[in-house]
Design a protein around this nucleic acid. Structure first.
Lengths: 199, 199
DNA sequence: AAACAAACAGTCAACCCTGACTGTATATTT
DNA sequence: AAATATACAGTCAGGGTTGACTGTTTGTTT
């Protein structure tokens, strides 16, 4: 039992952390920030309370780590979605659809919970702020690339940013009323505007 | 003391409720939904716990009423701002500035807290959903009027809605990063686009 | 003016959540 | 193979929040 080292501690640690963070994201999306008690997380993750507190001494530690976890998850999802993007005339509309899909996922809901929680929690804000700024920049760069537009042209940068903010706004509205039809109509027209204004 | 009825109960009731709801909105903006304990509200309002529980038996009752209170407050603010709106060439840009100002106020922060809380609270959602839909319609109508555009023209309706969602998105981004400069630049360009697209 | 109802004040018990503590098992190092 | 450090398990006390309870004042009705 001692010479045959089957499971290195590093892997065990990573697996344990991943389970905890996945559970945290799930609960954030399902029950919100306040509803995500550390006890629930340990239960959902199938991890003992002691083990949880070993990896994340306080709830803030757990949640901050979950933000980073969310970031990676969002990055992966974006890359995957970008790869499956069709070429052709409707490309702008497809890019918008992809962005909209991104922000209607549970991952966005979890992130939203963190943004709002961070608004009134300095500690959290200190961790979430820089992270979101980084993600924002990456998303902007990716969007410019996907849309294949020339950012040196005046106004283009602002319109791309407006597009991302619009999508966020639509996602926010979606959390309460949830009518996809309205969103689709708006994005249809927005795509047309972008086609005219960006070229 | 008994024949001179100075303060009717109806007024007293209304004053008491107003104080409680104002305090609730303040605390929602300052401390978030979870941080808004009913005890804090009664303290902030200068109202005894018993009086508070007389008017609002449970926290949900208080918060739902606060939503309605927020609605009225937003309506008033909108009317005031609309009255002070300058005429002339830059009108579109001024309307955008007005909308942006609306959603960067503490009232918006309080509303945001409620939206997010309602996302994982059925009871709250049942009260917040219809209310927000009503406000949304009113705001849309007011914006169409302020921008003085023809809604029968195809695409106009969607662009106005997109504008409102964009502003919401900007407001959401503002709660974490708070850079007004970026917002102004985006709205500058969006105003130009709207001028071209809506006419 | 008396009876009644509503508004209001203060206290408190039950509940849940966080994080600290003690003990055990597993992995790594020498 | 022994020693040591880390990972993990279960329990529990402290703090805070909700809403129920009792008593008092003020307004209304007859």
């Amino acid at each position: 039992m001692s010479q045959a080292t089957r499971v290195p501690q590093e892997q065990r640690t990573r697996a344990m952390r991943t389970r905890l963070l996945d559970a945290t994201v799930e609960l954030l999306a399902e029950r919100g920030f306040a509803g995500t008690s550390t006890t629930l997380v340990s239960q959902r993750a199938g991890v003992s309370r002691g083990a949880q507190l070993h990896h994340f001494p306080a709830k803030n530690d757990l949640v901050v780590a979950a933000v980073e976890h969310i970031t990676e998850a969002r990055g992966e999802a974006l890359k995957e979605a970008a790869g499956a993007l069709p070429e052709g005339g409707q490309r702008t509309r497809h890019v918008l659809a992809m962005l909209a899909e991104q922000v209607t996922s549970p991952v966005f809901a979890a992130a939203l919970e963190l943004w709002v929680a961070a608004r009134t929690d300095e500690q959290l804000a200190a961790a979430v702020g820089p992270l979101e700024q980084r993600i924002g920049r990456e998303l902007h760069r990716a969007t410019v690339e996907l849309l294949d537009v020339d950012e040196s042209k005046p106004g283009v940068r602002e319109l791309v940013q407006a597009t991302l903010d619009l999508v966020r706004g639509l996602a926010l509205a979606d959390t309460i009323t949830d009518d996809a039809a309205r969103r689709e109509r708006i994005l249809d027209h927005w795509a047309e505007v972008l086609e005219r204004e960006l070229r």
